[in-house]
Design a protein around this nucleic acid. Structure first.
Lengths: 196, 196, 196, 196
DNA sequence: AATGAATGAGCCTTCATTCAT
DNA sequence: AATGAATGAAGGCTCATTCAT
């Protein structure tokens, strides 16, 4: 199991940091190797090529990212509470690791088809979590029954994504988690003024 | 006036196409020049360097993109209708030019700081349009008075952005504009089941 | 006659200035054209190519440089006085036009054989002047009869050249002409026939 | 220690040869690499850029050039003998390595300021050697006490330099070392203190 | 397993020169 | 005669990857 090899994780962590600071295309393999404290050639004992570092990084980091969200949401009872937990956990984790946030928000928008495919593979697990919450909400009638799940999922993911991107762009000068409740409220209730 | 220089636009249009098909980093300047029907060196009479093509492309195309949205929304009366017009026009334009869509949704998500800065400069105009609509909606009480405009703007932009990205990723196999009404509805009404 | 064409001289003068400031290989034709106030293409109405500018410049400027030296030396009676006049005039002229000094001292040490040939062609006239003075000095016994004219000529030219180069390198911070008498003294005492 | 890296010296030696034959600006890095028997990229493991090859070449070669002159002159007793040794050794070394002679006499006369600076740095050591000999000669009264050392140094260096340049220009068709005694004689008779 | 020196394909950019106007 | 937009060949340099040790 790769995970037990210390150098593997050293390299992944170095890559997150280097890529966050320089962007993927300005992150030379030698720079990552240096940060990881290994020789350039060693990288290729653990990764097929440079792109594989990015993919592996994403699989590793997003894997545990999603696991944490799964864990937090399962503990809640209602769909509404689960959604809030998802938002909070999403924000919390990226706040705790803003290098990772930068990588996921910016560097993973790669257009190379094979790369995208693998990234989407990982993200799918996240989308499944969202879908489950939405289905639960519909079943217990806390959410409207006529919503288009795919669209709502897009709205949720897009909103969180944009919130994080803005926070990253603003150099993390404010507290992202503070926005969780408001974002949740907005998604659930919409813009409409009920007084009308 | 640059816009009157035919070669300038030839190069921009060639760049959109080539970058959409190959990705920025696989789009050699010589490839763009060939598609534009000019010599390699000619590129540098109109653009400072390769990155400047990307920036200029975005400024030109997003400039008219936003102008079109401004034009369409001004024609509508209520904030609600304006928001719908914004969503529809957003989707319509990217549907009409899917090469541009690919470039904006994928290739421009670069993290090189100076590039991001210029991109954000252009996007700011779009955000202003959204803000105006939101303020109008609050004033005429069709939108809640307690919304956080910055957050809502993020939600709207994030949702549209994610919708387009998904459509691009799925190789534009469905009709994006068809989703406009539903997306609008979701944003305005939220998830909540009013029967509760 | 080219000399009467005003643009020809404009270009030559611009070239001296630009090349002195940037070096030959960093002196783009377009830069020279701009300084001369003509279009790039106009250069090629007066010069065969870039190298021809350098050659022509040298022929023009060194031509009159040498003519002036010829004029000044002819006025003197003895070989000794003529040599002093040569040194003074050499220093005076380059002092008066330090851009030209830079070009002749540094930029003309080109190794392209055909270029060297043409430069040497011009310099030959200078060497002839020196030789005449030396022969006169030998004939009237003010100089030793056993000197190797070629060697002495090298010594004289090399000494003046090195003096000017040093002065150019030191950014012309001192008065070059002030050194003329001392340089002359140094050269002549070595040449003096002890029988005198 | 760079000197122990065989490739470093391979590249330097290849550069001397290629530059002597083609001139600096016609000496492509790839040409030097090929002659040195290394890949193009290898050049950049040992040198910062193309210009750095030229500078390093000069530093290396002139370094040992000057050391040799220092060694030869120290063995002699009188200032007069030392000066002759300096001239002979100067001529001998460049005769023995005419490729180097071409590079130093022609290609290094570049006017790029930073390049000049580094070249002068190296040459300074040579000038110090000359100065020491002159001072010794003055002290033991074999040279006049009223000479201007800076000027004499210029005369000596300029004369030797011009002698070598002429020899290089004439394609080394005669024996340079043969001229040493005569050149020495010419310089010394000008320096001699008539009171001796 | 680990190293890191070496490789060499690939590409952006410059700039002397041309030529239609 | 004069222009200057356009050309395109050419080359310095980078960096992912390999492989002998």
């Amino acid at each position: 199991m790769k995970k037990n090899k210390p150098k593997y994780n050293q390299i992944i962590d170095a890559a997150v940091e280097i890529i966050a600071e320089n962007g993927y295309h300005s992150s030379q393999v030698s720079k990552i190797a240096k940060k990881a404290g290994v020789a350039d050639g060693t990288i290729y004992l653990y990764f097929k090529n440079k792109e594989d570092i990015l993919v592996s990084l994403f699989q590793q980091k997003m894997g545990s990212f999603i696991e944490k969200i799964e864990a937090e949401t399962t503990q809640k009872q209602t769909a509404d509470e689960k959604l809030l937990a998802l938002i909070k956990t999403h924000f919390q984790q990226l706040t705790a690791n803003h290098h990772l946030a930068i990588v996921t928000q910016l560097e993973l928008r790669q257009s190379k088809p094979d790369l995208r495919l693998k990234i989407n593979e990982v993200l799918k697990r996240y989308l499944v979590v969202i879908d489950q919450i939405l289905n639960e909400g519909i079943k217990d009638k806390s959410f409207r029954g006529d919503i288009n799940i795919r669209l709502v999922r897009q709205m949720i993911f897009g909103t969180l994504d944009e919130a994080v991107t803005n926070w990253v762009m603003k150099d993390q000068h404010y507290d992202l988690v503070d926005q969780a409740e408001e974002v949740h409220d907005l998604i659930v209730r919409g813009l409409t003024n009920r007084n009308n």
